[in-house]
């Protein structure tokens, strides 16, 4: 017969209880958490300082104009009529058109550079996309006005001709006339949106590309080993992994699209009615309104302009919160495994 000797520690006569574990950081870790928290807090202070600056302008404006500030679409401060309804609608129209063009193109560019491009060309293509991001916005505004607008107005006319039965593709002119009125399709949210898309897509594309290149090699190789094609690898590994990066890049781009000033200013012809037709001449955005009017604005008018900026900031906050909830559930959002 055998016996097993189990050594016991002298103090170990206590009943079985879980050991109290302290999760709080200590020593160097605590310094790290507090230090980085301080930096994060200072960033928050700076950025919310701007929000506070805008909010301070908003209070007297809303007090003066009341809730009609959000429903009125005329902007005539000399007559006492001030409202941002038309301007907000225009801002979102331009942003939606810009993202409609920029999102697929950014995705295509990011996938092309990370998956399809020859390895020797990759760094060159990456530099080219960076260069696109660095072109000054006034140059894009002039390019959009001088080079893009003639082509985009023709495209708008084509859309009106064949898809004009959709209410938002309608324009108040006859597209089939022999001498069609080209001016009616220029200076619109459509043209401005395409120009803004050119500015937004390098930003979104760079972020997406960075994330795609981090997709785990083991999973890629596993997919290839199971016989999938290149597109199969993209569809099953890269895109699901990169969902957080795609959304993050798109949100970054959307932010830029909402805030773009000079290019929109140079292209559009400002109009303050509630315009649901992006192809037609005349629109306005919050940034273009502020930039165009702040020079001649009295202090009260300047406050009204900045209140419009504040409303834009709040709406962006809400959109980004929603997007963040989606990102947190994806793999590249919630932390990844090797």
């Amino acid at each position: 017969m055998t016996s097993t000797y189990v050594p016991t520690r002298p103090a170990d006569r206590l009943p079985d209880e879980p050991r109290p574990v302290n999760r709080a950081a200590t020593g160097g870790d605590r310094a790290f958490v507090l230090g980085s928290g301080a930096i994060g807090a200072s960033v928050l202070v700076i950025t919310s300082g701007i929000g506070l600056f805008l909010a301070l302008q908003a209070v007297p404006t809303i007090a003066r104009y009341g809730p009609t500030f959000f429903t009125q679409n005329e902007w005539a401060p000399d007559e006492g009529k001030v409202g941002i309804a038309g301007v907000l609608l225009g801002t979102f129209t331009v942003a939606v058109v810009a993202m409609a063009f920029a999102f697929p193109l950014a995705l295509a560019t990011a996938l092309f550079i990370s998956e399809y491009a020859p390895v020797r060309l990759k760094s060159f293509l990456v530099s080219m996309v960076d260069l696109m991001a660095a072109v000054p916005s006034i140059i894009y505004g002039l390019w959009g006005f001088l080079l893009l607008q003639p082509q985009a107005s023709r495209l708008a006319r084509w859309l009106h001709q064949y898809l004009g039965w959709l209410p938002f593709f309608h324009v108040d002119t006859d597209p089939n006339a022999a001498q069609w009125d080209q001016t009616e399709y220029t200076a619109s949210a459509f043209v401005a949106g395409i120009a803004v898309a050119m500015m937004v897509l390098p930003m979104a594309s760079s972020v997406m590309r960075e994330v795609f290149s981090q997709a785990p090699a083991g999973e890629r190789e596993g997919a290839l080993a199971l016989g999938s094609t290149r597109w199969g690898v993209i569809r099953s590994v890269v895109l699901p992994f990169g969902k957080g990066g795609i959304i993050g890049g798109t949100m970054l781009g959307l932010g830029r699209a909402l805030g773009e000033t000079i290019a929109v200013l140079l292209i559009i012809s400002p109009s303050f009615d509630l315009k649901f037709r992006p192809l037609e001449i005349g629109t306005n955005t919050v940034s273009a309104l502020i930039a165009g009017r702040f020079g001649e604005a009295s202090p009260g008018q300047l406050r009204a302009l900045l209140t419009a900026g504040f409303v834009l900031f709040l709406i962006t906050l809400v959109i980004n919160t929603l997007a963040a909830m989606v990102v947190a559930r994806s793999r590249s959002g919630a932390g990844t495994d090797l």
Partner: peptide
Amino acid sequence: TSNYPSFGKAIGANGSDQVMNTIAADS
């Protein structure tokens, strides 16, 4: 007024250079 009001078929352009560009364009 320093801000010309919009009307009818009028087009607004930002700055004299853009007014000139709008007029000089093919459209």
